[in-house]
Simulated assay, not measured.
Amino acid sequence: MSDTFTALEELQQNDGGQAALQQLATVLTDEQNYHRLFDVLLMQKKLELELPLIRPTSFDDVPDEHRADFEKHYVESARQVGTLLLEQDRVGDAWVYFQTIQEPQPVREALDRIQSTGEDYERTEELINVALYEGAHPVKGLELMLNSHGTCNTITALDQQIMQLPPDDRQAAARLLVKQLYGDLCHTLNAEVIQRLPMVEPSENLRELVSGDRDWLFAEGNYHIDVSHLSAVVRFARSLEKGCPELNQAVELAEYGSRLDQQFQYPGEAPFGDFYTAHGHFLRALLDDSQDEAVAYFLGQLEAEPDEEDKQMIAYVIVDLLQRIGRTDEAVELAVTHLAHLDESTGFSFAEMCHKAGRLDLLRDTARSRGDLVTWAAALIGHSGSATD
């Protein structure tokens, strides 16, 4: 180490500071000391800009005229160091850099390549933390958790995270849990059926396993999967979109739940009070099955509900379902009545819905009725512009 100090000092005296820093960067790269390498890369830029080197990562001493140049170098250096760390399979360390520069994709791709069985506890925990709780790749984090911690912990984790996930990740997470629970339930049912009917061939189809004269499977309050897990996964399944291959499995899970003893059919929030019946309607509609029946079921609840807050919740569910099954005009008309005044902080934007549906006329009229001049003007002029186009 002392030889390195001497060599760098001589290099600085003979060839200047940049030469010394470049050699130091080489030494740190060879040592795989990438965090300190990041400091040196920024020191090189600050030396070029004739700025103090004592706090290499700080922007506080960077004048406005150099800020854009230094920021560009900062991003490039973080990307370089993050890539070196990924090459060493140091995903958690790499995430620090890619997260800072808002470039999650390299870490997401690295996580996709990882196969973990949970045998290395500390590494698995680090990967779950980065992937799920820090948001680098939530679905991979859930997959790692499922393999290492089991279904119960994974369902709890998803319950805490699902509303913060973007729609694609939400659907992928729901698919993961639906497949897992469906497989677990079929496995348990096969064991019970074969114990009673040893000549019967095993089946991987839930509906087939409980069909026919097999009411004895549910006798005396019998169940074959943790009922709280079942209700959670059926609820997650509302995030599945039309065409998703797991929708059929989700419907079968809801059908199974509807056959459980009433004490195990926990009610949900409106309009899912009759939990499995309501979810069956919702999920079958996404499968293009009995859509009119499903819409009528939820509209009936809307008309019968006396509480205004619950009415809004029910209307939101119906509007969401109508949009997802391609009945946009009906969705907008219902939203005019029940959701037009809903604050956008709730996550629902009536204005955005009208814009996407090409119904700025409804937004204009609604804005006028509540005295919102700005939204009224935007809808009026936007609608006129669309008509002109």
Rank of each mutant, 00 (worst) to 15 (best):
G273N: 02
Q249P: 05
H279T: 02
Q265A: 04
S228H: 07
D3H: 14
F350T: 11
G118L: 11
Q80S: 01
E330L: 01
T83W: 02
S203N: 12
T151L: 15
T328I: 12
V200I: 13
Y97E: 00
H137V: 10
E293T: 15
A294L: 15
E241Y: 13
Q265G: 03
P106D: 11
R235G: 11
E208S: 11
Q99L: 06
I325T: 03
F38P: 02
Y133S: 12
T83G: 00
D184Q: 04
R90L: 13
Q262A: 02
L217Y: 09
T151M: 15
G382C: 14
W216N: 01
Y182A: 02
A172H: 06
D184K: 02
L41S: 04
L286I: 07
R123W: 06
Y121W: 14
D289W: 00
A278T: 10
D310W: 09
E208C: 09
E255N: 10
L49Y: 08
G92Y: 06
E309K: 07
D69L: 13
D274L: 09
G82W: 06
T388P: 00
H224N: 09
A296D: 14
D389H: 07
V332L: 03
E48L: 08
E204W: 08
E269A: 06
S386D: 04
R359H: 02
Y133V: 12
E344Q: 06
I128G: 04
D288I: 04
V40Q: 12
L302Q: 12
P267A: 07
F272V: 04
A237L: 01
V27S: 11
Q80H: 03
G17P: 01
R175F: 01
Y133I: 11
L49W: 03
D112L: 12
A367M: 02
H149R: 10
A191P: 00
K311D: 08
D3I: 13
T154Q: 10
F38D: 00
L299K: 14
